[in-house]
Design a binder for these strands. Structure first.
Length: 274
DNA sequence: CATGGGTCCTGAGTGC
DNA sequence: TGCACTCAGGACCCAT
């Protein structure tokens, strides 16, 4: 599933290839995934030029020449593929933007949880984006800010890490990996971590996110970049989906899978004690 | 503020 | 071989 590193990779691919392109058409077979409605999206994008493409949290933003912004959330199984129009149809393609130079931007989504949404102006976009917590890799994401957030909540630390309102962009893969690297049990209440543990976790989180970007994301089930290529980070998972394998720290223990907040959670009981 | 449940959706996996 | 069933999960919504 696309998290910060995967969405960042896709955004960079798109920015490289699509800035300056004109949107000439829209095709869809899944109306619910075009918000607020297919007609509204169509009316606001046709004939515009893509001026800038950015990412905030797991959301990709296309800034258009008419000052509207098209945002995309890939959720669990969404893909954005740049294709030549004559290339064969992609599996699970539900929305296609027709672009200049005979290009398609194909939104494919097996589970149909993702969406495209047109924002009428920057103000409306800001209303959405301001709900997110601090963005990793920006100056506002400091160790002090991180510690402050953790100290306010008694939630299990893994649930806090994945809460987009608290910290932006972190999902299940990178939360599991960061907690393992930091040697912190996913169930521990955030506000009971020691200063040292919080500092450690801050650095481990940035480390795994950096690794994820370096390896162009993790293709554990359905993720592909904008050119249809798999990422490599799944080859470097320490604990995510590694249940029953021996702990990478060679502690002699085995990685265990449990449920936390309804989500698959992977950890080493010996290295990440409660 | 915390916690737990339901919702969206469909491919993959299991059991018979 | 095929049918019925369960499971997975990001974000959001609701009730308690």
């Amino acid at each position: 599933m696309p998290e910060l590193p995967e969405v960042e990779t896709i955004k960079n691919d798109l920015a490289k290839s699509l800035v300056g392109m004109r949107i000439t058409g829209l095709w869809w077979d899944s109306p619910k995934q075009l918000k607020p409605s297919p007609q509204m999206v169509e009316d606001n994008i046709i004939g515009t030029t893509i001026e800038k493409i950015e990412r905030r949290a797991k959301i990709i933003q296309f800034f258009l020449s008419n000052q509207k912004i098209l945002i995309v959330h890939l959720k669990l199984t969404g893909r954005l593929l740049i294709r030549d129009r004559k290339e064969p149809a992609d599996k699970w393609a539900h929305i296609i933007l027709r672009l200049s130079d005979n290009l398609d931007l194909r939104f494919c989504d097996m589970r149909k949880f993702g969406y495209l949404r047109i924002m009428s102006d920057e103000k409306e976009l800001d209303e959405v984006l301001k709900e997110f917590g601090p963005e990793p890799f920006t100056p506002e994401f400091t160790v002090e800010k991180f510690k402050k957030i953790l100290s306010v909540f008694s939630l299990p630390i893994k649930i806090l890490l994945m809460d987009q309102k608290k910290i932006a962009g972190v999902g299940n893969i990178y939360a599991n990996e960061a907690l393992f690297l930091a040697g912190i049990n996913p169930r521990i209440q955030a506000n009971t971590l020691s200063n040292g543990q919080m500092v450690q976790l801050f650095h481990c989180l940035l480390k795994v996110l950096t690794e994820g970007i370096k390896f162009r994301g993790a293709s554990d089930q359905s993720y592909l970049d904008a050119f249809g290529r798999e990422g490599e980070y799944q080859k470097h998972f320490r604990v995510y989906q590694q249940d029953n394998k021996s702990c990478p720290n060679k502690c002699g223990g085995k990685i265990v899978r449990m449920k936390l907040g309804g989500r698959g959670t992977f950890y080493c009981p010996k290295c990440q004690k409660l």
